[in-house]
Design a protein around this nucleic acid. Sequence first.
DNA 1: GTCTATACAGTGATAGAC
DNA 2: GTCTATCACTGTATAGAC
Lengths: 175, 175
Amino acid sequence: MPLLAEIFRELGYEGTTLSQITERTGIGKGSLYHFFPGGKEEMAAAVLEEVDRWFEDFIYEPLRRDEPAVAIAAMWRGVDDYFRSGGRICLVGAFALDGTRERFSEAINGYFRRWVEALAGALVRGGLKQDAARAEAEAAVLGIQGALVLSRALDDHDVFRRAITGMQTRLKATF
Amino acid sequence: MPLLAEIFRELGYEGTTLSQITERTGIGKGSLYHFFPGGKEEMAAAVLEEVDRWFEDFIYEPLRRDEPAVAIAAMWRGVDDYFRSGGRICLVGAFALDGTRERFSEAINGYFRRWVEALAGALVRGGLKQDAARAEAEAAVLGIQGALVLSRALDDHDVFRRAITGMQTRLKATF
DNA sequence: GTCTATACAGTGATAGAC
DNA sequence: GTCTATCACTGTATAGAC
């Protein structure tokens, strides 16, 4: 599964072929279809679900549960770690940008909606008003996605780190 | 050419097939290969070049030439218009996220590098220090890309408009 | 459960008539 | 310049031996 996720991340949904998957995982097509009768689409759906679960466990749930300042600081650390300072892209964000979006719209929408809501909730508990919290949460989540795009486009991890640091200090100043 | 750009934007590089192109443009494969002997890759390269030229003419060059406040205001308007308030994605940003990046790395890098440099230059002329200008320019460009990702993921144009407006007022306050 | 075989549609690309 | 026909190949998916 981690290998599968990595392949989809590198090549995108359309760019990923079963041959690539068999080659890089060492698993034959027969076995692949034994585990995923729905084929490539089911494989990608499983990967998306796994990604979603990771964020739910390590980012969203702490944001809902823990002390805002602590949870938000952990979020920035977790994000920098998960995306390897821009060396790894967000599969969900990438899927949102092309025709793949229609195929997985529910999963994509849920991932980002719950992220924004969890972060906005923490900010409200931190003292922000509802509207301001939502705006700041959207700005943070979108900033992370944009940082991934720009750092990969410029092939420069510093862009990612700088952006993350900047957003973090800026956000901390609001509550 | 505009049709071609639209197809690549909707489907991504790997998702775009020659059949789709012939179908939606009404041009047969023979004619297509007459204009683009290099096939799909040459078509995508031509589209990227056209996109680049548009931004060069209507965004970057004004940023280098005109009065900073005026050019930056025009940039936000131009961006909102070009991306149809999030209804249209950035082809270059999308290409940066998957395996297509390697194929067009020069074009992708140049597009974003020149954007950041032009904007940072305008901010310097507006009174910011070099480092601060670069950071703000990166934040703005990356914010636009992120706004495209998030607004499409949530299928909500308001997210895009809100983000653009927020960044615009925030940036204006810095110089 | 895993592999090899293969089916069959669709891919990018080319040739040649017009 | 454009179209039709077709190429070789790869795509996803399945069947069946082991």
